[in-house]
Design a protein around this nucleic acid. Structure first.
Lengths: 192, 192
DNA sequence: ACCTTTACCTAACGAACGTTAGTAAACAAA
DNA sequence: TTTGTTTACTAACGTTCGTTAGGTAAAGGT
């Protein structure tokens, strides 16, 4: 028996991720979720304490994954150019490994309540700062063009954060291809 | 009196755009909307026929704007390189001129019902095809690198579609700066 | 054997949802 | 001045929401 049956707790969270991704947090009811899992809505509360807890877990779990992957990726590289490439690759990898979770992370965090909402925003801004530091160093080293750092990092992350959409495409694109193409375009541009 | 008072119909739609953008379509109730406008929920129905009609109008109105701006922009340019730059600029301009509407267009269209949903998806895919045609021509002309066209256009549009987030930033970024920076990065890359 | 825990159920809570019906006031057209 | 249209109101409809209470039956440990 290769595939062990997931326990309910895990199954509920997995299903919730998928449904929050597909219909959005606000448009997914606890009764919808329960039906998908195959139990009654009230029974969900044996495995969680509130709907918002589900969202909260998803968002902060993904934040942690992005942070860890980023740190590990840049640690082993020396130049800003290589660091950036590695960070991009790591970011894309986290998305690819968590297609549902990352979509929720990108789109549904607005439904977090204070004070978690503020904490979440802070984490995101710290993560972006990591990218800005690399780009700034690249400019100082005269490796990168003298671009507006904030704007450049914003553009890069916007491009990366949309990549979850690519995996449902009809052509089978591998994570490798996507990472190569996107980082190539951002670093070297479209023009010859 | 410089500012004419908007009629209710327009005021409701403007407020709805702002609220759909900020809280999302599903999480904005008709009572919320009515309160913001300063009337009772039931009174809204003198000016609209359903909540979904509001969303529908917003999405298809924006689609039309993107299409028209695109056509006008590429018509006056000759080379793929210039066409692409012009299309990017036009796209960013439409977003800048419709900050609320474009956000709804990008994020809330999932709540459209069939058959409008299918029609909407088709329009989007046609629009993307316009960009792909330009990039393909650029490659044929040996003006662009031999990239994966779909992937490249996807990356470009992802970067563009996030630009609405930039206007609420603390630094005052002009539409001009944003268009220059983003198109520069995408066409010529970050590396020197 | 008993006891505790786990995992589900039915029933129901109060609140909020989108929307309709019916009505009165305001205003323009005749 | 009468008539019709527009725009707002209150009241209510049936439905769905997240969640709680209380019960039951099986599982597992001692």
């Amino acid at each position: 028996m290769a595939i062990a049956k997931l326990d309910r707790r895990t199954e509920i969270r997995q299903t919730a991720r998928k449904m929050f991704k597909e219909r959005g947090y606000a448009a997914t009811s606890m009764r919808d979720l329960a039906r998908e899992v195959g139990i009654e809505a009230a029974s969900l509360y044996n495995h969680l304490s509130s709907k918002e807890e589900l969202l909260h877990e998803m968002c902060f779990d993904m934040a942690e994954q992005f942070f860890q992957a980023f740190s590990a990726a840049i640690a082993s590289e020396k130049t800003p150019s290589k660091k950036l490439r590695a960070a991009i690759k790591a970011h894309i990898h986290v998305i690819a490994a968590n297609l549902d979770g990352s979509t929720v992370f990108f789109h549904e965090w607005i439904f977090l309540q204070e004070p978690e909402l503020a904490r979440f925003k802070k984490l995101r801004s710290q993560y972006e700062q990591g990218f800005r530091d690399i780009v700034q160093k690249g400019i100082t080293d005269k490796d990168f063009k003298e671009v507006n750092v904030k704007l450049a990092v914003f553009t890069i992350l916007s491009a990366l954060n949309a990549t979850y959409d690519l995996y449902k495409s009809n052509e089978k694109l591998s994570e490798e291809e996507i990472a190569e193409s996107v980082s190539g375009l951002l670093l070297k541009g479209l023009k010859k």
